[in-house]
Nucleic acid binder design. Structure first.
Lengths: 223, 223
DNA sequence: GAACATAACTGATTTGAATCAGTATATTTG
DNA sequence: CAAATATACTGATTCAAATCAGTTATGTTC
């Protein structure tokens, strides 16, 4: 039930009981295993996904089988995408990084609630524009920094946003790290090794730890 | 008066007379000369600009004095930006490419109208998401195509979107073309010359003309 | 209209990053 | 448990694009 969901306040704080009920009526829960596709780029956008547990990568399928990971989502996050209100198609693929549980809300019901609740609509706009600001930063990071700067950015993203800790175990592969930073996996591995040799980070398989935050920050800022 | 503006339908088709009046009450017109700054990145977002004549470039000021042009706007277009509803700061700079005339609408009044008119709010969301889809395409273009593909994209953008003609005179410099495609001006000039030598386009100063659309399209698609 | 400044263009060189070609190490699965 | 497969890693080489160092145009301004 949406009404007693632990993420209710975070996601639907602006909704009236009746509106929440409307979303709840057209809702179903699904579990995905690691590697499974939750949304597929190009397919119809019929539902909005709200993550209750696990993590997923959101990526654009680009040219020559190359992907660009634009975000990693976890519990308490809502995923719609720019197809909402426009062409109602998915413009990215969402794939589970581990065991994932989501609530799927009907996109039409969702849009109706936006029409009836202007506060909620404004909150959604705020959310969209926040993502827009992040996209602008990503444009600069990807086009104006060279590899060490981009890898540093990715490490900070994983530490600060995804795992909220300077020491963490990633769910993503080296290829995924490369897909986050628009480079080849060989290059990503090389930079990681350079950082390790310079004692900026500790890396051992999936375990990452930031050792010298200031130096890493400097690399991130200067590109 | 907004009520008899020639772009009224295009921009504010969903508004009630009273709402349009509200925007009109807090509105003023400004003319900018070529090169002048309309909005400056980092400054307060107090107004939304509606272009009635002329052209402007919208660009993110990035690292080491490098810019990334994300859009070229002309008459009938509205420019707010992702600072709207969030931190109310500009996240890009808007600079006039020639003599420009804009109507500046109060951002607060604008937000109030969004609150009272759900159809308008939805139309704004649609607009935001359409830009979001374009941004996704731009991510792929800039990170997964090499220089010829990116220049081809820029030429198609100028022809199809900005000038709506395969033969056109640009208001932008070679440096601007480089800033649209995330490369140096030297590289941009070189690719332009290659295209010219291959008889794909005709370039003479500010005059551009697409000669071989199919070949250019192929370069754009394959990167 | 000469002097200056800005933008456009060109070639040589350097450098950053991809590609290629492997080996090593986990992780499935028959 | 061995075979197979995927992932991680490393070094050599190639290639794309930036940088550097100019020249040639095109405008401005005194």
């Amino acid at each position: 039930m949406c009404t007693n969901c632990s993420f209710k306040q975070q996601l639907f704080g602006n909704l009236l009981p009746g509106e929440l009920q409307l979303l709840n009526n057209n809702r179903y829960e699904v579990r995905y295993k690691k590697g499974e596709t939750i949304f597929k780029q190009g397919s119809a956008l019929t539902h909005i996904a709200c993550f209750t547990s696990g993590m997923a990568k959101i990526f654009i399928e680009g040219l020559n089988n190359r992907n660009l990971i634009i975000k990693i989502v976890k519990n308490g996050e809502m995923v719609g995408g720019p197809g909402m209100h426009t062409d109602f198609r998915h413009h990215f693929t969402v794939s589970a990084l581990n065991e994932v549980q989501v609530c799927l809300l009907d996109a039409e019901a969702f849009q109706n609630v936006i029409k009836t609740n202007s506060k909620f609509a404004l909150a959604m706009m705020r959310k969209m524009n926040k993502q827009g600001i992040l996209n602008f930063e990503k444009f600069i990071n990807l086009t104006q920094k060279q590899m060490p700067g981009r890898i540093a950015d990715a490490i900070f993203y994983l530490a600060d946003v995804v795992h909220e800790n300077d020491s963490f175990d990633v769910e993503i592969s080296r290829q995924d790290l490369a897909d986050m930073t628009a480079m080849t996996k060989e290059s990503a591995i090389r930079i990681l090794k350079e950082f390790k040799d310079a004692k900026l980070i500790q890396v051992e398989g999936n375990h990452f730890e930031i050792l010298n935050k200031e130096a890493l920050r400097k690399i991130s800022l200067t590109g």
